[in-house]
Design a protein around this nucleic acid. Structure first.
Lengths: 250, 250
DNA sequence: GCAACTTCTGAGCAGCCTCTGAATGGGCGC
DNA sequence: GCGCCCATTCAGAGGCTGCTCAGAAGTTGC
């Protein structure tokens, strides 16, 4: 009860300095997407509210005083830039993660994100959004009390998220982007069996239409690189999914 | 917790002698530009306020007692020089960084800035503004506890910001202005993967409309000069961006 | 006003990454 | 022990990313 834990992951939750849950506001005019996002963020143990347009976003923000805002650039009433400015005048400390279409006018985004803010292009994977948000909050000084900082460790497997570097037993392991994200998801849930459906939902973009077969494929890629010639850390649970756990700890 | 760190970078933050964050006032009548600037400065771990005209600038300055002011020369009510004079009577210690159009009366600027202040011509890059501000504050005796002064080091790569000189393993490396600024940004964030979008935001002018392709190009220029025939320090992380790190450091 | 340099665009190319399909292997229920 | 089904792996197509070259346009300094 002392170290707060997020509901979903086995890791200590990322909380505010006073121990209360991180507060996030999700702003998107697509209710389905907002629902998926807020579900995933609640799973992280965070307090989430949603808004469908710029006006209610500002209202909600005033009331909730969120630590971070996930903000679609294209809104029915205004654009994200105006909302950002209002938010910052109301609450200068808030971090903003923008959601934008890949081919959207990137130069405008470029200006917006110049500060501590960040953006993700649609379609994104939930892991990516969560990772970016965690990065933003960490950099804003939110992570303080519990930090392993930006480093994930399972046994002798270490992932440095900022440097995007993975080592096993001190040896460098080179991973492709998807492999990296898959491993990150596994490592953020050590000793927990993750179903292929869960993995697909989290690691692949929400509009991915493919089969669960890709997960198997990428697990096999990971094994070749991470477990190669060593005591395996990635295990199959037949009919259920996959787990990662330290070799000794069993 | 002893050495204060800036929010964004892993570097020690530049703070006031008493350890509190540097305080900066941004004065520009373009709210978008003011927003981008203050975002970037907050990212450095500084305390920022903004003002849109000369009158509120003076009011804000009286209240905040900033260490530095970023001041647009063209303001709706007065010009920057009048503001400067008022500021100096209120608060003689303050440093001023002027923002000015390229073809503005440069001799007037030159006269004013003789007194230790500095100026940057629009359109500027955020890295440039930040570097100038750091320089001003350092020269005003703000740098105190930390570091290295005007020298950045990553492995055997050394950058002297004031002399605008770069050496690798003692050998001089000659760089064009853009190359220099790109390398500075990389070296201020060692071991951290920087996306092309991030790099564009920071190193190129805020009005640059071009593509991320230029970043690749300039990275290749840098490699030819910095890594030429040596163990490479600049690494590509496919799908993520670029990192600089010392060769030995793994 | 000329020369040297700097910056940026476009095109081509090489290699990597992702995903599909199919063949093979292995565990588990019956 | 048999057969089914789940899981693993291979091979290859296609797309995409990043690197480099060449050249045009703009800028600076003499």
């Amino acid at each position: 009860m002392n170290t707060p834990r997020s509901r979903g992951t086995g890791l200590p939750a990322l909380t505010r300095p006073d121990g209360t849950p991180v507060r996030v506001l999700v702003v998107d005019d697509d209710p389905d997407l907002a629902e998926v996002l807020s579900g995933a963020l609640r799973y992280e143990g965070w307090e989430v509210r949603t808004a469908g347009d710029g006006a209610s976003a500002v209202t909600e923000a005033r009331e909730l005083m969120p630590d971070a805002v996930v903000l679609d650039v294209m809104l029915p009433d205004t654009d994200g830039f105006a909302v950002l400015r209002t938010l910052h005048t109301v609450h200068p400390e808030v971090c903003v993660l923008f959601l934008t279409a890949r081919d959207a006018v990137e130069d405008r985004i470029a200006g917006i994100t110049a500060g501590g803010d960040d953006y993700v292009t649609k379609p994104f994977s939930l892991e990516e959004v969560i990772a970016r948000l965690r990065g933003l909050l960490r950099r804003a000084g939110m992570a303080r009390q519990l930090d392993e900082g930006p480093r994930l460790t399972v046994g002798d497997l270490v992932m440095d998220e900022e440097a995007r570097e993975v080592t096993r037993g001190g040896e460098l392991v080179e991973l492709s982007p998807t492999e990296f994200e898959l491993l990150r998801f596994l490592m953020r849930n050590p000793r927990r069996v993750l179903s292929k459906a869960q993995i697909l939902d989290r690691v692949w973009s929400y509009d991915f239409g493919g089969q669960a077969h890709v997960v198997e494929l990428y697990i096999s890629y990971l094994r070749k690189k991470v477990d190669a010639g060593r005591e395996p850390m990635i295990h199959t649970v037949r009919g259920a999914g996959y787990v990662i756990k330290p070799v000794t700890g069993r």
